[in-house]
Amino acid sequence: LNLKQAKEEAIKELVDAGIAEKYIKLIANAKTVEGVWTLKDEILTFTV
Rank of each mutant, 00 (worst) to 15 (best):
K7N: 01
L14E: 00
I24S: 03
E8S: 08
G35N: 11
E21G: 08
I27F: 04
L39F: 04
K40N: 02
W37E: 06
K12H: 05
E42F: 15
D41A: 13
I24R: 05
V33D: 01
A30Q: 08
V15Y: 12
I27G: 00
A28N: 12
A6G: 01
L1P: 09
A10C: 06
L3K: 01
E21T: 10
F46M: 14
N29T: 10
T38V: 12
V36C: 02
V15Q: 14
K40W: 06
L3M: 03
L39R: 03
F46R: 11
L14G: 00
A30N: 01
A28E: 15
E9H: 12
K25N: 09
V48L: 12
F46H: 13
L14V: 02
K12D: 03
V33F: 05
A30T: 04
T32K: 02
V36D: 00
K31Y: 08
T32E: 03
Q5M: 12
T45K: 15
L26R: 06
A17G: 04
T32M: 02
L3F: 03
V36L: 05
V33Y: 04
A17I: 07
A17C: 07
L44Q: 03
T32L: 02
T45L: 13
N29F: 14
A17M: 12
N2L: 14
K22E: 12
K25E: 09
T38P: 01
V33N: 02
L3D: 00
K7P: 00
A20H: 10
Q5G: 05
K7Q: 09
A20S: 11
G18P: 00
I43G: 02
Y23W: 14
E34N: 06
N29R: 11
T45S: 15
A17D: 02
L44F: 07
A10Q: 01
A17V: 05
L44N: 03
K22Q: 09
L44R: 03
N2P: 09
I43H: 01
K12A: 08
T38E: 10
L14C: 04
I19S: 04
L39S: 02
V33A: 04
V15G: 05
N2D: 12
I11M: 09
K40S: 04
E9D: 10
I27H: 00
E42D: 07
A17K: 12
E9Q: 15
E34G: 06
T38I: 14
I11Y: 05
E21H: 10
I27T: 00
N2W: 11
V33P: 05
E42H: 13
N29Y: 13
K7V: 07
L26I: 07
T32S: 08
K4H: 08
N2I: 12
A20Y: 05
L26S: 04
A17H: 09
A30P: 02
Q5R: 12
N2G: 10
Y23E: 02
D16A: 15
A6S: 05
K25P: 03
D41C: 13
G35I: 12
L1T: 10
E42T: 09
G35Q: 15
D41L: 12
E9K: 14
V15P: 00
T47K: 10
V36R: 00
E21W: 15
K22P: 07
V33K: 03
W37T: 07
D16E: 14
Q5I: 11
E8N: 07
K31C: 10
T38Q: 15
L3H: 01
V36H: 01
I19D: 01
K25A: 13
E8T: 08
K25H: 09
V48P: 08
A17T: 04
F46D: 06
G18I: 03
L26G: 03
V33R: 03
A20I: 06
V48D: 10
A28V: 10
I24Q: 06
D16G: 11
I27Q: 00
T45H: 14
L39K: 04
K22N: 07
E13L: 12
A30C: 15
D41R: 12
I27A: 01
I43T: 01
V33C: 05
T32F: 02
Y23P: 00
G35C: 15
D16K: 15
K7R: 08
L14S: 00
E21P: 11
K4Q: 14
V48G: 14
G18W: 03
K12Q: 08
I19M: 06
K7S: 02
K12R: 12
E13D: 07
K40V: 15
V36M: 03
T38L: 14
K12W: 05
E34F: 07
A28P: 02
A20C: 09
E42K: 15
K31S: 13
K7H: 03
A30Y: 02
V33L: 07
A28G: 07
L3E: 00
K7C: 04
I11D: 00
N2E: 14
I11P: 00
V33S: 03
A6H: 04
D41I: 14
A30M: 09
E34I: 09
K22V: 11
F46P: 04
L39M: 08
N29E: 12
I24T: 06
A6T: 05
E13V: 09
E8W: 10
E42Y: 15
E21Y: 12
F46S: 09
K40Q: 05
E8Y: 10
T32N: 05
E21S: 10
A6I: 06
V48E: 09
V33I: 11
A28Q: 14
A28I: 13
T45R: 15
K40P: 00
K12F: 04
Y23S: 02
W37D: 05
E9T: 11
G35D: 15
I27M: 05
E8V: 09
A30K: 03
F46E: 06
N29D: 12
E8K: 10
V36Q: 01
E34S: 07
N2V: 11
I43F: 07
E42A: 14
V36I: 05
L1G: 08
L44Y: 06
I24M: 06
I24V: 07
K7M: 13
D41M: 15
W37R: 10
K25W: 10
A28L: 14
A6Y: 03
I11Q: 04
T45N: 14
E13H: 08
D41S: 10
I19A: 11
L26N: 03
L44C: 05
I19W: 04
G18F: 04
D41P: 01
V48N: 13
I11V: 08
L14A: 03
L26W: 11
N29I: 08
E34W: 08
I19G: 02
A30D: 01
N29M: 13
D16T: 11
V36N: 01
A6P: 01
A6C: 06
K40T: 07
F46Y: 12
E42L: 15
I24K: 03
K4T: 09
I19Q: 02
E9I: 14
E9W: 14
L14N: 00
F46T: 08
I19K: 03
E42R: 15
T47L: 15
Q5A: 10
Y23Q: 03
I11S: 04
I11C: 06
Y23I: 04
L26E: 05
T47S: 13
